[in-house]
Design a protein around this nucleic acid. Structure first.
Lengths: 135, 135
DNA sequence: GTTCGTGCAAACGGTTTGCAACAAT
DNA sequence: ATTGTTGCAAACCGTTTGCACGAAC
């Protein structure tokens, strides 16, 4: 069951406490991009006695240790992305929802010609409306 | 002198008050990406009696009316970009500074194949270190 | 008994808002 | 008189921090 989750935390130098596992179980498995508050709400469902501070602490540790990426895409709220591999993002301007776009789906050319910059990383950020296919 | 600035505001449906002109004079002319606080500091130099609230109000009006774009790229602070034309951004991870990359400098392919999305706009966000060429 | 995780509440920092004063027409 | 701009201070909201408690080794 979550022995693999325990191992994952340990492999990243994080002591796997019960609270941290509860947070990990949700935030590392979701394909959404939850805010800290969303994480708190979700985790509270199965784990009613966790405090806001612990959720924030845990999320920050996860980001520090490379299990999560923190994104600042929209209005004053950080969201967390368990997908730490390279990928692009689409932001639905109506709902605020963020969707992952696979790295291979897009191709960016001429980056090597930006010689004034030492580029560690890049991504395409797209904005618009998601076309709802019956969901 | 700033009759053109007055006209610019009026053309965007903004009453050109003295305070608004003072803000516009700085924020619409800069090639940096100042935060609200930076704008306040700059404007205060020439215009000591402007309040924080007025600066925020003015910036929000400018964004609403399309004179500025608001960017959420980094830690909990909105910055303003007077360049409202399409362009890309490079973020210096050390200094936090944001640089504009001309639209034509990069080419993104296969966007039209993202058929689940109605894409209004997109940009490439690059991160790394700017190479200081003697500045 | 020292280390580390947790909870609470207070503090923090950027931004917004309510309200009263004021200017312009 | 109405409309719109400004300033102040308080409120707000997401996040961080200080400190005390408690569990684990």
């Amino acid at each position: 069951m979550n022995t693999d989750l325990i191992k994952l935390l340990e492999d990243h130098g994080i002591q796997p406490s019960a609270h941290r596992l509860a947070v990990a179980e949700y935030v590392l498995m979701t394909d959404q991009h939850p805010s800290a508050d969303t994480v708190l709400a979700k985790v509270t469902q199965n784990f009613p006695f966790i405090s806001r501070a612990t959720v924030y602490n845990t999320l920050n540790i996860f980001v520090e240790k490379g299990l999560l990426r923190a994104l600042n895409m929209a209005e004053g709220k950080v969201v967390f992305d368990p997908n730490v591999a390279r990928h692009h993002h689409f932001v639905d301007e109506q709902t605020g929802a963020i969707y992952d776009i696979p790295w291979e789906a897009l191709e960016v050319n001429h980056i090597e010609q930006l010689t004034d910059y030492n580029i560690f990383d890049y991504q395409v950020v797209l904005r618009g409306r998601r076309i709802e296919s019956g969901d």
